[in-house]
Design a protein around this nucleic acid. Sequence first.
DNA 1: TTGATTCTGTACCTAGCGGTCAAGAATCGC
DNA 2: GCGATTCTTGACCGCTAGGTACAGAATCAA
Lengths: 190, 190
Amino acid sequence: MGRPRQFDPDAAIDSAMDLFWRKGFTDTTPQDLAAELGIGKGSLYNTFASKRALFDLALRRYVDLRAAGVTATLDQPGTARERLRAALRRLADADATLTSRGCLAVNTAVELAGTDEDATRTVRQLFDRLEGAFRTVIEEGQASGEIAAGRDPGQLAALVLTSFLGMSVLAKTTDADRIRHTIDAVLATL
Amino acid sequence: MGRPRQFDPDAAIDSAMDLFWRKGFTDTTPQDLAAELGIGKGSLYNTFASKRALFDLALRRYVDLRAAGVTATLDQPGTARERLRAALRRLADADATLTSRGCLAVNTAVELAGTDEDATRTVRQLFDRLEGAFRTVIEEGQASGEIAAGRDPGQLAALVLTSFLGMSVLAKTTDADRIRHTIDAVLATL
DNA sequence: TTGATTCTGTACCTAGCGGTCAAGAATCGC
DNA sequence: GCGATTCTTGACCGCTAGGTACAGAATCAA
């Protein structure tokens, strides 16, 4: 009972994710959030405990979305190489475009790691999931003879992950073309 | 004439660089800076136009220090591979240690790119300088037969740069050991 | 000395932050 | 219809940010 909520909290988290993604945690104010969600500040704080709590939900959603997106792409049919390229493209496109906001997880790592253990853990979780997914495809590629079997798949996966993180940084200072070239460079080494 | 300044502005920039490096631009307050430099806020603003202007000086200094350090390491005697490893180690050690503050340029790219064209340019300058230096060593390695000559040196240099940026991000969430492993992974692909 | 000049510390200013609260509006069970 | 309950709006609050003003302290030229 009681007055029904006049907005969808779930959609609100999506919008909040978008804002935090574009502006970062610190530079996003409660005003900004309320305006973006189209609600009053009171409703915001009535539904979410604090700016920080909302950010947590948004970050978790981002991590789930990314992880799911990448594994889905990697599970598509095709050679290991093709699937890896598609996955990196997908990540890069989602992150690099739209005023080059980069990757929320990377942005958060840089902004909050060291001061916020919770956020750091969530970010690390995404990194680990991505690395694990990369490793699986690489091993498949090695099994099919498509990728040289001599090299440690864990090492290769670490390289791919690190390159992706680097691309997310690069995306903030350069154009999408350079990102695509970098993807080529990564795949050429496998 | 007039009362002589009671602190060294040059040393002040160094201290400021250190603070900005650890806490980021937004989270560093004029109070913090004055305290760290051991001077009053009045002196701070009498010497430097604004927090932003001080940051600019600090960032430029960082860029010069890094660029000089890397080229110096790469100019040392040794094989191309050895020199590259030393350079990456040096970068990683300077950036990863000490409460894992990462790389000031990377941090700045993530925090300020998109809203601050000046800072973005300065950061991009460092990235370009690093990539250029990497490329030179790689070409030397190819000439001496130490690195496979078949691959585009520009592509390899882009890969090394991107990996370094990725490591700077990773450094904020993981321990130094993982960074060292990643360096190995990068060198193994050359 | 005295003045002109430039530094120094501290009090102060305005704006905006993250967050709270009171008054009213919807909904429900009865 | 009437409470009880929960949401919504918008005014409000304490605090700190980035920055300024000002009175005093050093210096130098004359």
